[in-house]
Simulated assay, not measured.
Amino acid sequence: MENYRDYLQAIDNVDHRLKVESVLQWVCDTFPQLDTKIAWKQPMFTHQGTFIIAFSIAKHHMSVAPERVTINRFSDEIVQSGYDHTKELVRIKWEKPVDYSLLERMIAFNIKDKEGYTAFWRK
């Protein structure tokens, strides 16, 4: 979480900051094998040098970016959780609760699916 301190402090809205901090801490606690860093101005988690998931903020939502393959695989569950998504990210509106079970399945899928993967992004 140390890598994310400056990012979190820059979030002006206290409620948004606390929500993002809670999600990032949960990922760190649930997947301690993941590495943390800021890249492309957003908190990112990697595993053995490959991208797993990233988070960012917007005015009306927190964005979750697990890569297109993962969004395609979990599209129905994303919608069932009350979120919308594009090809590259999931939008969790600030007033919506975080579906940690869905996040856990998406992250676990990426870790397993990218095991032994040598590139940062999927090709």
Rank of each mutant, 00 (worst) to 15 (best):
L102I: 02
V90T: 06
S56Y: 06
R91C: 11
S101I: 11
L103R: 06
R68G: 12
I78A: 01
Y117V: 06
A108F: 02
V98Q: 03
Y117W: 10
H60S: 15
A108S: 14
F109K: 05
Y83F: 10
T46I: 07
E77G: 01
Y100R: 12
Y83K: 03
F45C: 03
I57R: 08
P66D: 07
E115P: 01
V98C: 08
H60W: 08
L89Q: 02
V64Q: 02
A54C: 04
D84M: 09
F109H: 12
V64D: 00
A108C: 06
E95Y: 13
F74S: 07
N72D: 13
I78M: 10
E88L: 06
H47G: 00
L102H: 07
I92V: 14
H60G: 15
P97S: 12
F55W: 03
W94T: 13
D84S: 14
Q48Y: 07
M106T: 04
F120D: 02
Y117Q: 11
K123R: 14
H85A: 10
P97A: 12
E95P: 11
T70F: 00
I53N: 03
S75N: 14
N110A: 03
M106P: 00
I53P: 03
E95M: 15
V98P: 01
E104G: 06
V64R: 01
F120C: 09
F45E: 04
Y100C: 13
F45T: 04
I57S: 12
D99M: 11
T50Y: 02
S75P: 06
F51K: 07
H47A: 10
H47T: 04
F51N: 09
R73I: 06
Y117H: 12
D84Q: 14
E77K: 14
K87F: 01
A58M: 14
F120M: 09
R73Y: 07
K112H: 05
M106W: 01
G49T: 11
Q80F: 08
I92C: 10
I52K: 04
D99K: 08
I53W: 00
I78Y: 00
K93T: 14
F74A: 04
I111A: 01
V79G: 02
P97F: 05
T50V: 01
S63T: 13
E104C: 12
